[in-house]
Write a protein that binds this DNA or RNA. Sequence first.
DNA 1: AATATTTGTTAAAAGAAGTACAAAGTTTTA
DNA 2: TAAAACTTTGTACTTCTTTTAACAAATATT
Lengths: 215, 215
Amino acid sequence: MKKEVKDVSMAVIRRLPKYHRLLKELMEKDVTRISSKELSVMIGFTASQIRQDLNCFGGFGQQGYGYDVGELYNEISRILGLTSHYNTIIIGAGNLGQAIANYPNFEKKGFHIMALFEKNPRLIGLQIRDVPVLDVDELESYCEGKNIEIGVICTNKESAQDVADVLVKLPVKAIWNFAPTDIVVPDSIVLENVHLSDSLYIISYLLKNKELNEA
Amino acid sequence: MKKEVKDVSMAVIRRLPKYHRLLKELMEKDVTRISSKELSVMIGFTASQIRQDLNCFGGFGQQGYGYDVGELYNEISRILGLTSHYNTIIIGAGNLGQAIANYPNFEKKGFHIMALFEKNPRLIGLQIRDVPVLDVDELESYCEGKNIEIGVICTNKESAQDVADVLVKLPVKAIWNFAPTDIVVPDSIVLENVHLSDSLYIISYLLKNKELNEA
DNA sequence: AATATTTGTTAAAAGAAGTACAAAGTTTTA
DNA sequence: TAAAACTTTGTACTTCTTTTAACAAATATT
């Protein structure tokens, strides 16, 4: 069993997308090498933390030189599983569902959106890019035999758990939930509950306390 | 200076929205009292952590009884600053900008969306609920004297930093950024960079490692 | 009045981040 | 080309932060 499979803390994992993003930007600027110290300035973590994070997955750097940007980007892509292909469906074709279906890089990263599902008849039949919006009643029959791996929930709060229950039965391997409620699924299914409002509430907290501190 | 102004770690703060959400659900179910132990089962933190978190802001509970759900909900609302009013604008009226403008509870929580701004002429002139979509060229003149507190960036990656620079000059007090890049603003401005793809990449990581572990 | 419950808080344990430096490589200089 | 000087990683160790455990004190319930 490889090092990366065990004993890497979630704190480290959750920093990987930021490394990935920054390395992409460096590549676009044709930067080919970078030291942990330089990266530190750009990313806002200490150089030590960067070295320690990367070392959880292997020694990608070289003493006296630093890291090869392209190589490190590829390694992190591989660690994050962005070199695989995932059949994906979106339930809820409102603004948020459409926004996600239109997200430019998801297809490139292997998240292949096969269909959106919707109950509002006005939206059924639309195409978002090349992706059809189907009737949510067809969800189970459509998915039969298609090996759907990821289900994205973009419904309202009320429907979210019901949709999740259907997805669990299909079954999907992972659920990405944007409905403003914590859905519950068996442990065998990977789940990320995203709460957009959480970060807005944090902004509110910080604003309030900034004012109090300044007063 | 009150306790809550200093020395409360971000780890605690970032859990507050989850308490807030759960207490709301309890209220809707007409639950009037709850112990840290019961809350623990629902929320997935230890009872000890819940008691310690809440105690950062004051002793809201009572021995032998627990917490009054309504009172605790109000306290957390107050701590998060959700009893204040914030003038808010959204830049970018694409699907994501519209999704946020339509988010049902933001108005109720005091985030009053005054206008959306857009450069695409097809969208300019629309109304999202009662909120007008204006030309982004009018952004500065519109905001003059209106005391805009929060700016929400829903543009593409390329425009995000330019928009942020304009918002800084207005000035706004806080920026909520959904463009898939980390924007940079002076320390005096509260900033939350939200990266939707981060949680998808984590899903990808977890899927990959689940398969490796099972194999 | 006796028993049971549950908080607030202190203390201990676990986890994450920062410091320091030997080892290994790169770059410069002669 | 070879040696000296410089750079930078990987990692052991230390410090700091966060979480969990434990329990006295206070209240509720029987």
